[in-house]
Each structure stands twice: as structure tokens, then as C-alpha cells.
Design a protein around this nucleic acid. Structure first.
Lengths: 158, 158
DNA sequence: GCGAGACTACTCGGATATATTTTGTCCGAGTTCTCAGGG
DNA sequence: CCCTGAGAACTCGGACAAAATATATCCGAGTAGTCTCGC
């Protein structure tokens, strides 16, 4: 089980876009330079965020990405769901119905599989924690020097 | 992000091995028949559980797998960690140090990355829930008919 | 000097290859049971 | 009839392919800025 690195990139980019809100929209190329990431692939990772309404994109020259909402309104769950697709890590394939399960009576499978319930309970706790933290919280925790450095870096390159 | 189906299979097999404890050790072939799973691949998935001390394996004829501990002593976290390798789904690649981060002062990275901390907090909640549930809990929640059916099925095939 | 128009440069969006992980299969080492032969 | 010993069958363990997913790259559609030409 491995989360896509796009989640890490996306969150870092949300922070930078918050810091450089007055310079928006910011092209992907600039964002990529800030973290030395492959620009094309970073763009591919940010596209789902735009589609999910977390980022707003502007085409054409002088275009780029900006935050579509206030940092307080963007939860980590939003970002993870947008990039990972919002599917459960654990996927019940109803193994219980196969093999010996084919001999079961009809009503037995009315209740969901206990293993699935247990795993989903754990994932719910995970989601609850993700939904309880916002990009604004990350901004508060980040060192102020990083924000200033990112700003100078982007302006220097420009 | 997708959890290996080996987790689902492993947990179901733990249940069956609990139900059929007096028939142990049970070969993988029998377990595979109970759920119509590819026997060789199921074996591959159960091997990490044996290595982790959750299952005990016996080689040779009349060999097979049995539970190495009481169901009360096997948590879902144990099974997930054994099969998934115990690594964090989110992996911080220290992106903050690259690009603009190379200009930072030395002490700034003494504190861990805030994004990493946030993600780890969520994963901790997930792990806590997994560690709080045992195979014994799954046994209690499973329909009694399933246990009897599995027993009859295995004995019939034999 | 000023305005209109076409051109160029730059942006995002989606379609196309490569790498890596997951899934699935195969062969070898070891142990137990079976069965034939001898006492 | 009982014991001994060799053979055969069955088990797990780890090494070897195939498929699926994630990673990385390229090309096309569209927009803003710019430069030239005409008035």
C-alpha cells in the first residue's frame, strides 16, 4: 500500500500558492522549480485538484493555477480524495460468497462482511483525522522563513 | 493507494483456521478451496504471516498452517503490517529541501515537515483502530452458520 | 502619432510511452506415510 | 504376524514470469501580449 507522491506534491503546492496568492495565477513551471520537480508530471498531478475545485486554472499566457478556495476551506481529505480517487484502500471482494459460501442461505449476506466493516471503521478514523486538518493549519505550522524564501525564489527566477 | 488483497485473504484464513483449530495443521490447498482462491498465490500471501509469527507452518506430509497465537492476541494491525510490510502509506520525500529549500538555514529542518506530521497523525488514528480489533472480535461478529459450513466443506473435500 | 490586425509566445488539458509494483506460477528441500520384503 | 527400510506422495519455502498500476513525457487547443502596417 503506497500513497501517490502526488499527494505530497499537491499539499506543498497548496502552501506555496497560499503564500504567493498575490502573484497568482502561477504557472506549473514555477511551482516545479520551487521543488525541483518534473514540470509536466507535476501538472498531471495538479489537474485532479483543479477538477475537484481545489485549484482554479487559467489557460493561455499569464495563466496558471491559484487556490480556488480559502486555505481554511481545504482539508487534507479533500486533497487526498482528489488525487487518490476517493476509493477505499481496502476493497472487499466478497470472498465469503465464493467456494463454501455458495452453499449459504440467501439471508446470510444481508449483513456486510465483518472484515470489511472492521477495515472500514479504521479507514473512517483515518478520514476523520484528514478532514479535521486544513491547509490553513499547515500554513500556521510552517516556518515563516519558508514562505519568504519561496516568494523570493519565484520572483528571482522571473 | 490500494491495499493488497492478501490482507483480506489473510484475515478470512485466520477465521477459518480458528474455526477448524482441531483439524490443524491445514494445508493451503484446503484453505484455497474454501474461498476458490489460487492456491499458490494464497500460499505466497500467507507466508509473511508465518514469518511474522501469526501463523505457524509445518512442512511435509500432514503439514500445513495453524494459528500461532490465540485469536484474542492477533490484531488487525498485526495482519496488515505483516502483509503490507509495515511501511507508512504516505512517504515524505523531503521535497521541502529541494529547489528553494537549498537556500534555507541549517536549523530550519530540525523540525519534521508539517505535512508529514499531519499525514502521520491520520495514519496513527488508522493504526490505533486496527490495533484495537482482534481476530476474536471478527469471530464474534461472524455468522455461526459460516463456521459450520466451512467445517463441513473442508471435511467433505477430504 | 494612433489604431487595427495578425503573429508569436506561453498556458492548461488530455493522449501516449516507460518503470515499478502487484499479481500469479513454477521448481526445489524436507517430512511423513505406505508398502514390500525379510525375519 | 511383526519389524525394517526404501520408495512415493504431499507439504512449505523461495525463485521466476505476466499483468496492472504508477510514473514520466509529448502533442494539441486556446489566450494574452507584441509587433507591424496602414491611416
Amino acid at each position: 500500500m503506497r500513497m501517490s507522491e502526488g499527494v505530497e506534491w499537491g499539499l506543498h503546492c497548496c502552501l506555496v500558492l497560499s503564500w504567493l496568492d498575490d502573484l497568482a495565477p502561477l504557472p506549473v513551471g514555477r511551482l516545479a522549480e520551487v521543488f525541483e520537480l518534473p514540470p509536466q508530471y507535476l501538472k498531471k498531478q495538479l489537474q485532479p485538484l483543479a477538477k475537484a475545485g481545489i485549484l482554479a486554472s487559467e489557460p493561455g499566457a499569464r495563466g496558471g493555477y491559484r487556490l480556488a478556495r480559502e486555505p481554511e476551506a481545504i482539508t487534507l481529505m479533500d486533497v487526498v480524495a482528489a488525487i487518490e480517487g476517493g476509493v477505499d484502500p481496502f476493497r472487499c471482494t466478497e470472498v465469503r460468497r465464493r467456494g463454501a459460501g455458495t452453499l449459504a442461505e440467501a439471508g446470510e449476506f444481508a449483513h456486510p462482511c465483518g472484515i470489511s466493516v472492521a477495515m472500514r471503521k479504521a479507514e473512517l478514523a483515518w478520514r476523520r483525522e484528514l478532514a479535521g486538518q486544513t491547509v490553513a493549519d499547515l500554513l500556521a505550522a510552517a516556518p515563516p522563513a519558508a514562505a519568504q524564501r519561496a516568494r523570493r525564489f519565484v520572483q528571482r527566477v522571473a
